[in-house]
Design a protein around this nucleic acid. Sequence first.
DNA 1: ACACGAAAGATCGTTCAACAACTTCCCTCC
DNA 2: GGAGGGAAGTTGTTGAACGATCTTTCGTGT
Lengths: 225, 225
Amino acid sequence: MTQRPDDDEVLDRAEKAAADIRSSIISGQFTPGSRLSEQALGDALGVSRNTLREAFRMLTQEGLLVRRPHAGVIVAVPSLASIIDIYRVRRMIEVQAMRAAPPRHPAGRQLASAVEAALAARAAGDWAAVGTANMEFHRAIVSLADSARLDRVYANVSAELRLAFGIIDDPEYLHAPYVDRNASVLRAHEEGRSGDAADELDAYLIQSERTLLAAYARRDRDAAR
Amino acid sequence: MTQRPDDDEVLDRAEKAAADIRSSIISGQFTPGSRLSEQALGDALGVSRNTLREAFRMLTQEGLLVRRPHAGVIVAVPSLASIIDIYRVRRMIEVQAMRAAPPRHPAGRQLASAVEAALAARAAGDWAAVGTANMEFHRAIVSLADSARLDRVYANVSAELRLAFGIIDDPEYLHAPYVDRNASVLRAHEEGRSGDAADELDAYLIQSERTLLAAYARRDRDAAR
DNA sequence: ACACGAAAGATCGTTCAACAACTTCCCTCC
DNA sequence: GGAGGGAAGTTGTTGAACGATCTTTCGTGT
């Protein structure tokens, strides 16, 4: 399902380490601001310091890690500015991809199956799976643009976004309201109403941003005690 | 002028090496497809193989280098697909940034001075400087969107584009036609006609893409003898 | 002459050890 | 309780080493 036999999936150890760290960050095991020691993490992942440093370089460029000279790398700490910026990029890419989407694009299948998966997961009460399906839905939207570079940019932004999602611990609150909206966007797209689909998506993203910003402000206030 | 005292410009050796290699690629000293040996290049830049590898990792993520497992890295070879993709990204970002540009944005000054620089350079017959001013003009357009992430993405795409420009050896042919169009876009922007500015820019980019694709096809045909 | 295949050579992938430069932490002193 | 200073720990960077893998060369057979 997730395999891509045509793609050259020969990962070297640095790439594997980067993938490991990335998923640890996204899953919340490494919390924002926490320091990653080269020695300790290298031992844990079974790679040398040099190799780990290559992984750090990649993740730093992706914005998931931040380097502080001579003081190690830390997991990036989402800020109000970064959340706003991420949504700016999302809106620019997703809305335009949807608006210009050709009718029978192959990615349409992926959109549909992501919506199906989200509905099924919601019925089962599996909110984590709802979240995964939701992310997949938006990834598929971007792939409507048929641009390898946009896909890559979006993958990065998406990882940063999940990092920011970490400030909300309730996945239901985070993803539940959007399952039906996804379905509505999909319907508009399938019926050839690309403009409607794009407009709905835009409103959707604006609201999603507001929700996240509000949660951030709330947590910030609480953290200040 | 190019200094940014507020920015943390403490470059470690890997970043310096990456910057060196980047400019060598952009300037055409390292031609597409040529192989970069770790040993030789490390000696030339005065860095160890491990450090150079970190630089390679960054440049590979930027799309300027391509890793072939166990066979070293080569300078990325522009393809028809990559040119098309780069322009797709440019249009998406630049046109929308221009369309949504607020009236008195600080970057407006940069737009104006880039146009001035291009005019002066053209009058002096310095086509390389015209090219630099042209790239700066577009960078300023993107910065109208006030998005750190878009700025970053554009910087990458811009470097890839310059790599593709390398297939045209005549900078006059490459940049001359666009000086006046830049000025026209600027005028529309300054007069508050953002829509017009965006439309002109769109047409501009489409034509620029055609020119480059034509040059590519021509060179491809010639290369095949 | 040319295709094929195997051995030799070169390069990559990765680790380890070492050391200077720099931070951080802790302890002492005022 | 805060300032200062030193010890301990980490990062930045290098050089050497070695197995794995690719490239080139060379020889052989048709």
